[in-house]
Amino acid sequence: MGQTKNVFRLLLITFGMFGFGFALVPLYDIFCDITGLNGKVTGPTYTSYNEELDTRSMKVTFVTLNNKNMPWSFKSDSPQMTIETGKDYLMNFTFTNTTAEPMVAQAIPSVSPGRGAKYFHKTECFCFEQQYLAAGESITIPVKFIIDPEIPRDISTLALGYTLFDVTEQFAYK
């Protein structure tokens, strides 16, 4: 009798721990939301703001980076842009595969300061998918974005960085 009870308790603890592991996912989400940890931008969102909202102008800096061993040329049309919050904007980025081989690249976005990331909405972005370019091919893709007018007043500038990684090998697995 005592043993059955023990087994039952142990099973309960096991399931409890298992459940706790899953409970951590929303818990950490809340934690990161409160502290603003992790300056990553999530998938495409479509938002529009009505004109009555309090808008202001801000400077957005675009940073294009190549990770090690990524020989592509990767540039934005201009390095900076002054924008109004709550309005749609567009910036063109040009990718060129300068090698003699076809390659696949993945651009990883990062917003700085990190706590500004959740106010930076991209409605269209090449970072949502991988780019395949044949040898010598070049392509220009726009990023469409809108900045939430509720962004804290003390942030007067945002930097949107893209780091280009070579994922040709990983692509070959698929």
């Binding site: 502290t35 603003g36 940890l37 300056g39 700085s112 990190g114 706590r115």
Partner: peptide, 9 residues
Amino acid sequence: GMPIAGELF
């Protein structure tokens, strides 16, 4: 490069 709320906590 943690946000300030994280640093303070």
